[in-house]
C-alpha cells in the first residue's frame, strides 16, 4: 500500500491556483524531498496531505485512509515551519501534553532522546532557540511513532549548526523505515538527505526522480542563443536536450551534449550570438523552477 497517494490535486485561492492537478505517489520507506521556490505550492500540498486544507479537486490517501482518519490513529505526523508552541510550557510539558492525547504514545524520555533535547527538558519553550524549538516539534511528531512523517521547511531560520543537528536526528530516526517527505528550498538539504527529489513549480511537478537522476538533469551544459521564432518542438527533439526555455528573443537549452546542439543551431537555424556554459544543481533548480520557463523534462521518472 502506498504511504502517500495524491491524485489530481487542485487547490485554488481566489484567482490563484496554488496546486494544479498534482499527482504524486510515495511508497513506504521512501525519503522524499519536495523541492521548489517559495510560493510553488509546497505548503498547500502538505496542508492537504494533513487534512488542514480541503482540495478543490482530486483525492488524498495516506496508507489508504483519509488524512483525518490517519491523524486520529497517529499514523501521520508533521513538523511545521513555525509557530505551534506555547511559550510558557517547558519542553517536557509540551511533549507530555501532546503524549497524553495519544492512546499509546512512546515514552517522553525516548522521544526527547531521539530529538536530542533531553538536556533541555525543563527549559521554557520561550527560552529555546529556533533549532531547539524545531527539535521539540520533531520530538512531538515522534510520539505516536507514525509511519509517515512530514516536514514543512523544517530548518528555516536555523543556523548552520542547528540545521546539521536537526538533520542528524532525522537521519538517525529514518533508519527505522519511516516514510519521510520534507519540503525545502535548500538544494543541499534535498541532495544530502533524500532518496528522491520531487521538483514543484507553480503547483505542478516539473521533475521527479532519484537524487542521481535530478543531478543528471543538472550535470549537462546550457546553450544560449539569440533566435527569432524558434521551433521549440524541433529543438526539444535534438539528442540529449533536457529542457528548452524561451526568454525574450533568447533561447536557453539545457543538454547533455552541447556540441550537437551548437552544431544544430548554427547550421539549421538562424541562431546567432551563441554562448555555452556549464551547469550545476543550483542552475538546474533555477532553470527547472523558473516562472516563465517553457520546458520538457526527460530522464525523470514519475
Amino acid at each position: 500500500m502506498l504511504a502517500i497517494d495524491l491524485q489530481n490535486l487542485t487547490k485554488r485561492y481566489g484567482a490563484v491556483t496554488a496546486v494544479n492537478d498534482l499527482t504524486l505517489q510515495v511508497a513506504p520507506g521512501e525519503i522524499v524531498a519536495f523541492l521548489g521556490p517559495n510560493g510553488a505550492g509546497k505548503t498547500t500540498t502538505i496542508d492537504m496531505m494533513l487534512g488542514l486544507a480541503r482540495p478543490d479537486a482530486g483525492s488524498v490517501r495516506i496508507h489508504g485512509m483519509t488524512p483525518a482518519d490517519s491523524i486520529a490513529r497517529g499514523d501521520i505526523a508533521a513538523v511545521m515551519q513555525t509557530g505551534g508552541l506555547l511559550k510558557d510550557f517547558t519542553v517536557a510539558e509540551t511533549v507530555q501534553y501532546t503524549a497524553s492525547l495519544y492512546p499509546h504514545a512512546r515514552p517522553i524520555e525516548e522521544v526527547l532522546d531521539r530529538a536530542g533535547i533531553r538536556g533541555i527538558a525543563t527549559r521554557r519553550v520561550g527560552k529555546c532557540s529556533g533549532g531547539e524549538q524545531q527539535r521539540l516539534r520533531f520530538a512531538m511528531a515522534l510520539l505516536s511513532d507514525p509511519r509517515l512523517l512530514i516536514l514543512d521547511e523544517p530548518t528555516t531560520g536555523m543556523d548552520v549548526e542547528g540545521r546539521r543537528e536537526f538533520w542528524q536526528a532525522i537521519r538517525q530516526d529514518a533508519k527505522r523505515g519511516r516514510t519521510i517527505l520534507f519540503a525545502t528550498h535548500y538544494l543541499d538539504e534535498a541532495d544530502a538527505y533524500a532518496d528522491r527529489i520531487v521538483l514543484i513549480r507553480e503547483g505542478s511537478i516539473v521533475a521527479d526522480g532519484t537524487t542521481a537522476e535530478i543531478k543528471n538533469l543538472a550535470s549537462g551544459r546550457r546553450v544560449r542563443a539569440t533566435l527569432d521564432n524558434p521551433d521549440l518542438v524541433a529543438l526539444r527533439a535534438i539528442d540529449g536536450v533536457i529542457a528548452v526555455e524561451l526568454r525574450g528573443d533568447s533561447v536557453f537549452i539545457n543538454c547533455s551534449d552541447s556540441d550537437v546542439v551548437a552544431r544544430y543551431l548554427l547550421s539549421r537555424t538562424a541562431a546567432r550570438d551563441l554562448e555555452i556554459s556549464s551547469q550545476n544543481l543550483e542552475a538546474a533548480f533555477v532553470a527547472l523552477t523558473a516562472k516563465d520557463a517553457v520546458m520538457e523534462t526527460t530522464g525523470a521518472v514519475a
Partner: peptide, 16 residues
C-alpha cells in the same frame, strides 16, 4: 492566544 500562536493548528495534527 493559542490560535494566534498556531497551537490550535498543531493540536489539529493530533487525535484531540
Amino acid at each position: 492566544l493559542e490560535r494566534s500562536l498556531g497551537w490550535s493548528r498543531q493540536l489539529r495534527l493530533t487525535p484531540l
